[in-house]
């Protein structure tokens, strides 16, 4: 019996949706077993997802993250990887509550768009592709995680400041924890983004003959890089923390989304592989 690629991908969506439901129940009932269930389902989904990504690469005979479909699916794969590492490290099932719905929307979006295998542009058939794209997506995933912590922080902070306590109060972790983890995610994201930009310029030098060509994607990546530089600088020098940092992480996420999707569709340039 054989299954079509699409059927397996739908099953993947199903696994992520179930995981998100598990996390939802964890959040509402605060029972650890639901959190664990969510984590296990996400992990099984991720294993399957790994297989699917590998399969596409085999078909393309190259690291194949080009075009919107591949890109969304790969982004979801990286986000799930990053959140699982984070949860595994701090042993609380809170990241998944916010990350899983995001992962679900990415794969759900991917599953309704054209997933036909189209020839990979010659310029992308390079080992640098895997390095550059993976690093950039790792940074995106870290910034996404930082965004989730920032949202929780802002929420919790508002309740504490206004002294109005509602159902979320008991379910969200301590401010200090959210602040610390958000910061950590930004640090990792910043390192990955820096390496991503550097690897990109090296590749650009080889492929296009120039390190930097002020293509919109490059420009926005640089803006993003400076934004998080401000975040880190503020934290280390001016002791910004808490709400200020959280607000920056939210702005950073918006700029990141624009760099990822907006630029590709609205500002054509050398990097417009998504819309092609």
């Amino acid at each position: 019996m054989t299954f079509s690629y699409q059927t397996i991908f739908s099953f993947l969506v199903f696994l992520y949706v179930s995981s998100a439901i598990g996390y939802f129940f964890f959040f509402t009932t605060q029972k650890q077993k639901f959190g664990l269930l969510g984590f296990v389902l996400a992990f099984s989904g991720w294993i399957l997802h790994t297989g699917l990504v590998a399969y596409r690469c085999l078909v393309f005979k190259s690291f194949a993250v080009s075009g919107l479909y591949e890109s969304l699916s790969f982004f979801a794969w990286v986000i799930v990887l990053v959140y699982m590492i984070s949860e595994f490290r701090h042993k609380q099932h809170i990241d998944g509550v916010f990350v899983l719905p995001l992962a679900v929307s990415l794969v759900a979006y991917a599953s309704v768009i054209n997933s036909d295998i189209r020839p990979l542009p010659a310029v992308l058939r390079s080992p640098w592709m895997a390095v550059h794209v993976t690093l950039c997506f790792l940074s995106y995933a870290c910034f996404t995680l930082a965004f989730c912590f920032a949202i929780m922080y802002i929420w919790q902070e508002k309740e504490l400041k206004s002294r109005k306590i509602d159902v979320f109060f008991f379910r969200l972790p301590a401010l200090e924890f959210l602040d610390r983890l958000g910061y950590r995610a930004v640090v990792f994201g910043f390192v990955f983004l820096s390496l991503g930009i550097v690897s990109g310029s090296i590749w650009a030098q080889k492929a296009w003959g120039t390190f930097w060509s002020w293509d919109p994607k490059e420009t926005f990546s640089l803006i993003l890089w400076f934004l998080y530089l401000v975040y880190l600088h503020g934290r280390l020098i001016a002791f910004w923390r808490g709400k200020k940092s959280a607000n920056l992480a939210i702005i950073g996420f918006a700029v990141m989304l624009f760099t990822y999707l907006g630029v590709s569709f609205l500002l054509p340039g050398l990097h417009s592989y998504l819309s092609k």
Binding site: L160, F170, L172, P173, A174, F177, R180
Partner: peptide
């Protein structure tokens, strides 16, 4: 049984939502 209902325990509960 959830949620502090005396002044001193409410203070504890709040401090645990601020500090890790």
């Amino acid at each position: 049984g959830k949620g502090a209902i005396s002044t001193s325990t409410a203070a504890i509960e709040l401090s645990r939502k601020i500090f890790e």
